[in-house]
């Protein structure tokens, strides 16, 4: 098939699937949070609240759409769709089963990181365009956080690239199928790399305990303070899509992606993604928020040096053990 046609059709499918998953991911999260806090979560709409996401979407669509008088209208309206577009664009190179991806880029891993690194701009643009001090403070924190955690995130993803000798996500998964998953091989190095990747990606995604940009107890709602209705919903949606894509990337880079016995690849990939995503939920609803300075310390004083050490260890392993 023509690659352009394939990519376009696949984009339609993956956007539809991801958007649907996102809707019910909010249901899972609300149920999960409810149980953590000894509540039931949504129960009213449909069986065990399963129709709650639809009710939420309808509610958001009905809300009044307010643009602040002093806002920069064009940028204010541009930011929400842009952030969703960037979040969805990262899904293009994630292989959900052999050959099931939009385009097997040679630089797939870097592409995901580059595009998700840009996701901070719509947030900043929206906050600046709102002309609100809480929004702007939140956005400055978001930018500082994203640009800091980008460093350990990039260094940690370099390790699977180094071990598999390729930057294509499919290539890394195939290498793991033949040689064992990177989470356990080489012993310790892969696990350390995954730990750094996991923490840094949670921070980049502004999930609790790294949600200082949003920090509702100090900044109202951070960058999204002035947003109402579906525009606010789009920011929320982008965050969910990004968290799912990052979980899928983690599954592909460290847990062998679609590799697994018995069941078809898609099942394994979805299972691994859901498990990883649920672990982030568990952390999110049981940990407290870091202070901004603690967060910066964690990044620059621990994660960056640690990722450099692990990268050197991986390089030595490849050179001395595999090269010999």
């Amino acid at each position: 098939m023509n690659p352009w046609l394939h990519a376009s059709l696949y984009a339609v499918v993956v956007v539809t699937v991801l958007m649907t998953c996102t809707a019910w991911a909010t249901w899972i999260e609300r149920k999960f949070a409810g149980r953590v806090q000894s509540r039931l979560g949504p129960t009213r709409v449909g069986f065990v609240g399963l129709l709650q996401p639809i009710a939420d979407a309808l509610k958001l669509l009905q809300k009044e759409d307010i643009v602040p008088a002093a806002a920069d209208r064009i940028l204010f309206n541009l930011a929400p769709p842009l952030t969703v577009a960037l979040a969805l664009a990262t899904a293009a190179v994630i292989p959900f089963s052999p050959g099931l991806l939009a385009s097997d880029l040679d630089v797939g891993v870097l592409y995901v990181l580059a595009v998700s690194g840009l996701m901070v701009f719509p947030v900043w643009i929206g906050a600046w365009a709102s002309n609100n001090k809480y929004a702007l403070l939140g956005a400055m924190r978001a930018v500082a956080q994203a640009i800091s955690y980008e460093v350990p995130l990039l260094l940690a993803t370099t390790i699977p690239i180094l071990l598999a000798d390729t930057m294509s996500v499919s290539g890394i998964v195939e290498y793991q199928r033949d040689h064992g998953w990177f989470i356990g091989r080489p012993f310790g190095i892969g696990l350390a790399a995954f730990a750094i990747f996991f923490v840094a990606s949670m921070a980049e995604n502004n999930r609790i305990p790294f949600d200082t940009p949003e920090a509702e107890s100090e900044l109202v709602s951070g960058p999204t303070t002035e947003y109402t209705g579906m525009k606010f919903g789009l920011f929320y949606m982008a965050e969910y899509v990004h968290s799912i894509v990052v979980a899928a990337l983690g599954a592909a880079l460290f847990f062998g992606g679609w590799d697994g016995p018995g069941a078809p690849g898609l099942h394994w990939m979805v299972l691994k993604t859901v498990v990883l995503w649920t672990i982030t939920l568990g952390l999110r609803w049981t940990l407290l928020r870091f202070r901004t300075d603690q967060m910066m310390n964690l990044c620059w004083r621990f994660l960056v040096p640690a990722s450099l050490v692990v990268l050197m260890a991986a390089a030595l392993w490849v050179h001395l053990v595999e090269g010999a």
Binding site: D106, L113, A114, G117
Partner: peptide, 25 residues
């Protein structure tokens, strides 16, 4: 040159531009 393209996105769009925004702010 897809590699150069992603590096351009990471370093210039993602990095340098962020610093400029900080400068402006």
């Amino acid at each position: 040159a897809p590699f150069l393209a992603t590096i351009q996105l990471i370093l210039y769009t993602g990095g340098a531009l962020t610093l400029m925004l900080f400068g402006v702010m």
